[in-house]
């Protein structure tokens, strides 16, 4: 694995740029651990200062240092993205592999659930979810809701791969070697779908961050946990752009764009690396 990463870093420019961008973003989020101010305290610094030393990204109208606030926001946003991606990946893997392998009735039941999730409109559901939960709405609840909504497409993709694996002779060999269904799915089939999962993970993180920012900007989330979206929400509440406090909006937006681009480049380069044709020319066929 480390050799793979080294090779990718050395021979694939997209991967190198993506890694550098993400490392930058991670470094900023790591800085939150040494922040001099707690994230939710306001009026700890003079308000509305433009970027200048020692407030390198300026301060907000609520008397918060934009740089240190941003470190918390990006940390929460990333964590949110990773959580959603992880949970929805697990769901899509289990459902996709089982449906593809078992076939028949199991497949039909699972896929009808899957199709339901594909056709229901996400955004109204999440807004509705907010209005039902109101004050009980939290970061973790939203992550859970979004992972329940985010697995369906990839489960279908994984199922189609699993279905073709089911017909391969080695699956039959595994059965006649006495392997259990769990063993076949985990040891024989999982390695084939993991590459797909890797690249969709990046896209899924992007998707969930994007949706979270959208919901937060509109105020449909827990606005007391600082995320990039919540930051922009508060900036809008204080009409930052009209008041000329552009740095309150610009820097969060820039950071989220850097995150998007970094993840996108990683997804693209990994796709190239796991492409069977490219893989064949490396291991020989």
């Amino acid at each position: 694995m480390s050799r793979v990463l080294r090779d990718l870093f050395r021979y694939n420019r997209e991967f190198a740029i993506g890694i550098v961008l993400l490392a930058f973003v991670l470094l900023i989020s790591a800085a939150s651990f040494v922040s001099p101010y707690p994230p939710n305290d306001s009026f700890v610094v003079p308000p509305d200062l433009p970027p200048s030393w020692p407030y390198i990204l300026g301060t907000t109208s609520r008397g918060q240092d934009v740089f240190w606030l941003l470190t918390f926001a990006i940390r929460n946003t990333l964590l949110f993205g990773f959580t959603v991606a992880l949970l929805s990946r697990i769901l899509s893997l289990v459902i996709g592999l089982v449906a593809g392998y078992a076939g028949g009735l199991v497949d039909r039941v699972l896929m009808s659930i899957n199709d339901t999730f594909i056709v229901i409109p996400l955004f109204p559901i999440l807004v509705l979810f907010y209005f039902v939960m109101r004050d009980r709405m939290s970061w973790a609840l939203l992550a859970l809701a979004m992972s329940c909504l985010g697995w369906a497409y990839d489960a279908r993709l994984i199922r189609s791969v699993a279905m073709s694996l089911r017909t391969r002779e080695f699956t039959e060999t595994s059965i006649f070697s006495g392997m259990s269904m769990r063993q076949i799915l985990v040891e024989e089939h999982l390695p084939y779908v993991l590459p797909i999962v890797f690249s969709t993970t990046m896209n899924n993180i992007n998707w969930s961050i994007g949706l979270e920012v959208t919901l937060s900007v509109l105020g449909f989330t827990d606005i007391n946990t600082p995320t990039i979206g919540v930051l922009i929400y508060w900036a809008n509440q204080h009409t930052a752009l009209v008041a000329g406090v552009w740095w309150w909006i610009l820097f969060p937006v820039m950071l989220v764009i850097i995150t998007f681009v970094g993840l996108f480049l990683l997804a693209v380069s990994m796709n190239e690396y796991i492409d069977p044709r490219s893989r064949l020319s490396r291991v020989g066929g």
């Binding site: 002779e169 080695f170 595994s174 070697s177 006495g178 392997m179 390695p191």
Partner: peptide
């Protein structure tokens, strides 16, 4: 195609010996 191309081949022999 009788053995998983991503796996070492001896594992099928060992699994059969253990399970069967």
């Amino acid at each position: 195609d009788a053995f998983n191309p991503l796996k070492q081949i001896d594992r099928y022999l060992f699994t059969t010996a253990r399970r069967m």
